[in-house]
Design a protein around this nucleic acid. Sequence first.
DNA 1: GTGACTATTGCAAATAATTTGCAATAAATT
DNA 2: AATTTATTGCAAATTATTTGCAATAGTCAC
Lengths: 148, 148
Amino acid sequence: MEFNLVNAAESQIHATGGRMTTQRRMILQALIECADHPTAEEIYQKVREKNPALNLSTVYRTLRWLEEHGLVNARRFDDDPRLERFDPVVEQGEDHFHFRCKKCNQITEFDTPLIEVVKTQFVDCFGGKVENATLVFYGLCAECLNLT
Amino acid sequence: MEFNLVNAAESQIHATGGRMTTQRRMILQALIECADHPTAEEIYQKVREKNPALNLSTVYRTLRWLEEHGLVNARRFDDDPRLERFDPVVEQGEDHFHFRCKKCNQITEFDTPLIEVVKTQFVDCFGGKVENATLVFYGLCAECLNLT
DNA sequence: GTGACTATTGCAAATAATTTGCAATAAATT
DNA sequence: AATTTATTGCAAATTATTTGCAATAGTCAC
């Protein structure tokens, strides 16, 4: 019913002559459990609790691999642009957008049909072809706004 | 008539007890001439043609300073996220959005009132407050599309 | 203009996130 | 169980950006 990252990864790996290792399994698991756009370091720490032998470069290599195979998106946010954050793909081919709270850094995902309209307007005006879009809102989430 | 980066910078600098130096003048000039979202390195090279003594860290410091004073925006694009690009502010307080061609890397700026609508929809749905927005389209510009 | 004050610069070294080379390890295949 | 080679761990490299500090050069008061 729902797109399953672990299964998708497993078939991709085998389809390309790759191997499903303990490390990859644990990294995938952590990615799903974190859910909230973790950094490589965060995933590393999480997996390390169970498997202290894991190396950070393995985390990076696995995330890159997942990214290249369309199973994970890498994102950076303007208020913390040095840190790459990783976002498992939930439904293939579907864009979604982000709101980031400037205070608590929590990320909210949302969707809107209007971006398609903007794409069309853009192409009508400038020509060319729009393949994908990144939209990020920055502000205060409901909770942080109430604390003000 | 048009917002003038050099003048704005000059008054900001003096207003905060700063000094207008040769380097700052040249960096501002290069920023205006480049126009197309240069990197620190690109500005550095451009200024160096006239003033080979300039140091890259001066470029970074100046750009940071301009950014902190709202005269320049720093941006990163998903297809080249390690590189910060700098975008002089043309009209204060106005958001604008970007299209980046995946082939020639050219950046096109555009604007749309629909983002305000999306912001409103977001707040209606999730609460909180949206302060600013980044929207980037990636695809092929008219020219590169025709070459296909 | 001249000198004094201190912001700014150049330089070199430090950071920090991410990548890479290589020998050791461990999945998969027979 | 043995073989093959993809993957790992480790340490070192890379790259963009930042920082400390002594030297330089704007600016202001005279």
